[in-house]
């Protein structure tokens, strides 16, 4: 013990006191900066979008159905809000069950090597740049969908149910349906990975308790695993919705970019991110630019709501140490 004591470097009291202070200051500054940056972003979007928001009113802007930067200089975000909600919501609906199934398979059924292979592939899909997925959509998916799905249905509708034509829209290949399908593919990895994490964190005791009651594999999942993992799965789903809402490039490449309602099933549409990326370069009118900024502000608020919702779900439904918190 004595020998160890003699090895300890003598450090002055001042050094210790000062070191502690400096470290604290650095950590607090860096930690606070993230709050400042976020608040600053919100403020800039709000400030820059202020012109449009004052001109049309916040709710007027949201519910305005005309987006005409050329002639009337009338800006309403409703077409894009609508396009975003429909594509993201449907993409979530399409992807949620396959994604949870991937999570269950990887966590419960697959042998270890297959499970890690799946995990890596899922991460790979998530890592593919969205512009690459967009290219694939343009050259592969959209033409294929046009030839095998849209055209036959359109031709059938033309002869047998002409009333459906306006709802179906022009089968150009680029439109709401194509964008929704690509979106759903893009968010599968997020839901799957988060579901798998949630399923894996279910305690062994819960599984064994249901096994000991004579539950089969599927019954263990239904009785012990999924109820326990529900908060993680739900939160993962909501975060995936956030991804879908914010997805820009692939959607802008595939949705056809039509600024006026009504949108149709196969026909072109637009989302909030897609209209921003398509128009900000040519927005010369300050009201036009301000309107795009205001859309950015709305997106920011939606992202905030989605994240708060996910946090709330985790708080409300999560289970720790056998207790419902």
């Amino acid at each position: 013990m004595m020998r160890l004591q003699s090895q300890v470097k003598s450090t002055s009291i001042l050094y210790r006191w000062l070191g502690d202070r400096i470290f604290t200051v650095v950590v607090v500054l860096l930690g606070a900066s993230i709050i400042l940056i976020t608040a600053g972003m919100a403020w800039v979007l709000f400030d820059e979008g202020g012109l449009a928001l004052r001109e049309f009113g916040f709710f007027g802007f949201l519910s305005g159905t005309t987006w005409d930067p050329a002639v009337q200089l009338q800006f309403g975000a409703w077409p894009f809000l609508f396009g975003t909600l429909v594509t993201s919501g449907l993409a979530l609906l399409i992807s949620i069950f396959p994604a949870i199934a991937v999570g269950i398979f990887s966590a419960e059924y697959a042998p270890k090597w297959l499970s890690s292979l799946i995990d890596n592939l899922v991460q790979l899909i998530a890592a593919v740049p969205s512009v690459v997925i967009g290219i694939w959509g343009i050259f592969v998916l959209a033409p294929w969908m046009r030839e095998t799905v849209y055209m036959p249905i359109y031709l059938w509708a033309e002869t047998s149910a002409p009333g459906l034509i306006p709802i179906l829209g022009h089968p150009i290949g680029y439109g709401m349906t194509t964008a929704t399908i690509v979106l759903s593919l893009m968010i599968v990895p997020y839901t799957a990975a988060l579901s798998k994490d949630a399923i894996e964190s279910v305690p062994k005791e819960q599984r064994e308790a249901s096994r000991a009651l004579g539950a089969t594999r599927w019954e263990v999942i239904r009785m012990a695993v999924l109820p326990y993992a529900r908060s993680g799965i739900l939160a993962g789903t909501v975060l995936s919705l956030g991804r879908a809402i914010g997805e820009t490039m692939a959607v802008a490449m595939l949705i056809g970019n039509k600024n006026t309602l009504p949108f149709s099933i196969f026909g072109a549409g637009a989302t909030m991110p897609s209209v921003i990326v398509n128009e900000f370069r040519e927005a010369v009118e300050s009201l036009h630019l301000s309107s795009l900024m205001a859309i950015g502000f709305v997106l920011f608020i939606i992202a905030l709501i989605v994240n708060l919702l996910a946090a709330w779900i985790i708080r409300k439904y999560s289970i720790s140490g056998g207790k419902v918190v």
Binding site: E205, Q206, E208, A209, S210, A212, L213, M223, A224, P227, Y228, R230, I319, G322, K323, V324
Partner: peptide, 13 residues
């Protein structure tokens, strides 16, 4: 049947 070391009620039930 089996009873474990720690109580294992199904927490959502």
């Amino acid at each position: 049947g089996m009873v474990f070391q720690k109580p294992t009620p199904f927490p959502t039930m």
